[in-house]
């Protein structure tokens, strides 16, 4: 027996994890290519954004950010995110809950529909809303009669952003909730909890990290969305320009420094998102691994 045990140790996972499967030159070549690629296509542009933003000094940088049109664009972006993210969080939780915890007809259709914004080009998403609410759209005449503006106004931007960012929260939660099953919820009910108590005290804490991750991704996309918003916004300076649109306008006007100054804000948002995301991912992965491990140990 002792022989068998020691042999297992030799061929155990420790050996593979030391990465001795490839010769050293191959390993170094692969790592170098990957790093060079990342540097060229991701790090360099990011560094360039900040270099250009600051190349005429802090004064110009802050002037570009505090200029009224830029302030309006920042405000509109924040408003859009502030509306879209909470709504999509609620919708996402509802959708994930119904998909993971109930059996019903049309469940697969619902899953497909949730994925649709990922599959459709954002431009098309924007056009859909123009076709629906534009002056010559289905609801156009009625909206004009009632003096409601959707296209080329904030509501249109919010709608387009909501459409594009819809899947993020639901997509994060569905696999997590499916892995966890409904036993804990039923347990809470037998112990006398109300549906509300069950949700707040059992369901939500169990999916906390997945939810935060989904919300972060949703927020990053809501603030950074360009295509769909570009179609419905009309690019009215100081009124319907979001940050990405404002950046484009400035760039097209050859105001490179101002354009990169605003861009640096979005880039900063991206960096913060990445940091928060990796922390949350790390925590969430532990939780998910635990859920899976428990599910597996229960099946054995």
């Amino acid at each position: 027996m002792a022989g068998v045990v020691s042999m297992r140790h030799q061929s155990g996972p420790g050996r593979a994890s030391q990465g001795k499967t490839e010769p050293a030159p191959v390993r170094w070549a692969l790592i170098t290519i990957a790093l060079a690629f990342l540097g060229l296509f991701l790090v360099m542009p990011l560094v360039l954004v900040f270099t250009y933003a600051f190349n005429r000094g802090l004064g110009v940088y802050f002037a570009a950010l505090t200029e009224p049109d830029a302030m309006a664009a920042i405000r509109l972006t924040l408003i859009t995110a502030a509306i879209c993210v909470p709504l999509n969080t609620v919708f996402g939780v509802c959708a994930a809950w119904s998909i993971a915890k109930f059996e019903f007809r049309g469940k697969n259709l619902l899953i497909t529909l949730i994925d649709m914004p990922f599959a459709i080009s954002p431009i098309i998403a924007g056009l859909i809303f123009v076709l629906l609410f534009g002056a010559r759209g289905w609801f156009g005449p009625w909206l004009i009669d009632n003096n409601i503006r959707i296209i080329f106004a904030t509501p249109g931007i919010v709608l387009a952003t909501m459409f594009v960012t819809f899947p993020f929260v639901a997509r994060e939660l569905i696999p997590l909730m499916q892995a966890q099953g409904t036993d804990e919820e039923q347990s809470a009910l037998t112990l006398g909890a109300s549906g509300w108590q069950m949700f707040w005290r059992v369901t939500l804490p169990n999916v906390k990290w997945g939810l935060i991750y989904g919300v972060i991704l949703c927020n990053a996309r809501a603030m950074g969305e360009f295509g769909a918003v570009s179609v419905v916004s009309g690019h009215i300076r100081g009124l319907t320009n979001t940050m990405p649109l404002h950046i484009e306008v400035l760039y097209n006007d050859y105001q490179f420094t101002a354009s990169f100054a605003v861009a640096s804000l979005l880039a900063l948002l991206a960096l913060v998102t990445l940091v928060v995301k990796s922390v949350v991912e790390w925590k969430g992965a532990r939780e998910h691994a635990q859920a899976v491990r428990e599910a597996e140990s229960e099946q054995s």
Binding site: D183, A188, A291, E298
Partner: peptide
Amino acid sequence: FQHYALFR
């Protein structure tokens, strides 16, 4: 429950 269903 068979699988305990403790609140994790």
